[in-house]
């Protein structure tokens, strides 16, 4: 018996290690090729660079206005996610605690919007934004807040359903007003799902390309992904400028990977919690 167990274990570890290498290989490729010239990338794409030349990273960072666009993307993401978290938790709470037909219909409405593909609203939305003078960064934040609502409301709704009313009722009897009730009683209990909401929304907002493209276009203040897109568009009429793309992509994903590695445990817990509690 023990030898069979060991054999099984070894097989499992081998499989896992092979798959891990496979999973990481594109990232490894990205790192290796961010230090090579176009000709070198073409001729020896899988080799280590002959010299670890930082000039491509630096020029890529300049091309995509790294500091500025990073900062802008960060602000947009943080503000949007904050708004989404607060508003969707409040809305979900209201709908769970107040079991009227109206709240049921509203809940269905919020959730069914998850099915609406972006294309269906894209063109009229931009037109509306133009009329309301929202084709700028504040407008972008408002739009992200709107789009993030569906999933977040859904997640909060499921989670809050499992929180007993008794705690809140006790607080009400003790004379708490609505703000204290929400902020000091309910919200701390929502920590696990809040983390999920923050992580999921941050990820798609940080990486999003189409909405900033339509709203900001080629304005002087672009998000990181948008800078990447325009840098590629402008520097190559035909063919792909790999020596620009690779370092630019590397530099734009390093922040996320770093944050992820630091907060891994929370990520994993958050994702799993969100998944099952529905």
């Amino acid at each position: 018996m023990p030898s069979k167990n060991n054999f099984g274990k070894i097989v499992r570890y081998i499989v896992l290690i092979i798959m891990s290498l496979y999973t990481l290989s594109p990232l490894a490729l990205l790192i290796l090729n961010s230090f090579k010239s176009q000709v070198e990338i073409d001729s020896s794409p899988t080799n280590f660079p002959t010299t670890w030349n930082f000039k491509y990273l630096i020029s890529a960072m300049k091309q995509i206005n790294f500091l500025q666009s990073f900062f802008i993307t960060l602000i947009i993401t943080i503000i949007s996610v904050t708004i989404i978290t607060l508003i969707s938790s409040m809305a979900a709470w209201a709908m769970v605690r107040c079991k009227t037909k109206l709240s049921f219909v509203l809940f269905l409405m919020f959730v069914s919007a998850m099915l609406i593909p972006f294309q269906s609203v894209m063109f009229p939305l931009i037109h509306l934004a133009d009329i309301l003078n929202l084709k700028n960064i504040p407008g972008l934040i408002i739009m992200y807040s709107g789009f993030g609502l569906s999933l977040s409301v859904f997640l909060y709704h499921g989670f809050i359903k499992s929180i007993p009313k008794s705690i809140e009722e006790a607080a009400i009897i003790d004379g708490a007003n609505i703000f204290q009730l929400f902020w000091h009683i309910l919200f701390p209990l929502l920590k696990p799902i809040t983390i999920t909401v923050i992580i999921l929304n941050s990820m798609w907002i940080w990486n999003d390309y189409l909405l900033p493209f339509l709203v900001l276009g080629n304005s002087s203040t672009k998000t990181l992904t948008l800078e990447l897109y325009f840098a590629k568009m402008q520097s190559s009429q035909f063919g792909s400028p790999w020596e620009l793309i690779f370092p630019a992509v590397l530099v734009s994903i390093i922040p996320i990977i770093v944050i992820f590695l630091l907060l891994q445990k929370h990520f994993v817990k958050g994702i799993s919690a969100g998944a099952i509690k529905e």
């Binding site: 276009g217 568009m233 402008q234 190559s236």
Partner: peptide
Amino acid sequence: QIGSGTDHMEPLRIEMN
């Protein structure tokens, strides 16, 4: 400014609109 490739009409239409 934008490159003359596939996607240049979309931003132009948005601006013209």
